[in-house]
Simulated scan of single mutants.
Amino acid sequence: MSRINKTQNNLQSVWNNLDLAYGHMERAIEDLSQMTGLSDEFKRMAEQYDLSEISIMKQEVRIQMESIINELARKDNFTNDEQYNSGLRLIREMGYRHVSGEPAVKYYCMCNGY
């Protein structure tokens, strides 16, 4: 298996796959719970499957994605673009997680390919 670099796009792809996996597992468990003719052991296994592990992995991926943006902002320079500078300043001062919904932050991320 070839190695994959930790980039924003690769992490987003992993997050999307985990999100799909969560939905598919949730539906599969629901289907199994309604299915007749399954062994008691198999039904118990399906009932006890812990979907929270997928949620935990999604959260960890999100943290990695945020750290990439925070690191970019830490190293970045201000420009003549006020909206860009506003987004950069917000990320530096408060961290991406706390300001990700701000229009200037969205603009900053878009300008940087995120």
Rank of each mutant, 00 (worst) to 15 (best):
I54Y: 00
D19C: 11
M25A: 15
R44N: 12
I56P: 04
L11A: 01
F42W: 15
M35Y: 09
M35S: 14
K6A: 10
L11D: 02
L18G: 10
T7V: 02
M65D: 02
K43E: 07
S2H: 08
M35N: 08
K58S: 00
T79I: 10
N9H: 09
I56C: 07
H98L: 11
K58V: 02
E102V: 07
I54S: 00
G37A: 05
R27L: 12
V105P: 02
E53S: 11
Q34D: 15
S52Q: 09
Q83C: 02
R92E: 00
M35D: 11
N10D: 09
N10L: 06
G23K: 08
E47I: 10
G101S: 06
Q83V: 05
I68Y: 04
K106Q: 04
G101E: 04
E71M: 11
E71T: 15
I69F: 05
Q8N: 08
S33W: 08
L38H: 05
Y22V: 07
H98N: 15
V14F: 10
Y108C: 00
L20D: 15
Q8D: 10
L32T: 04
S100P: 04
R62G: 07
I29W: 05
V99K: 01
L32M: 06
H98C: 12
S2T: 13
D19Q: 13
G95Q: 01
M94S: 10
S100T: 05
G95C: 01
Q83L: 04
R97D: 11
E30V: 12
N85K: 00
A28T: 14
A28E: 13
Q34C: 08
L88P: 01
N9I: 13
N80E: 12
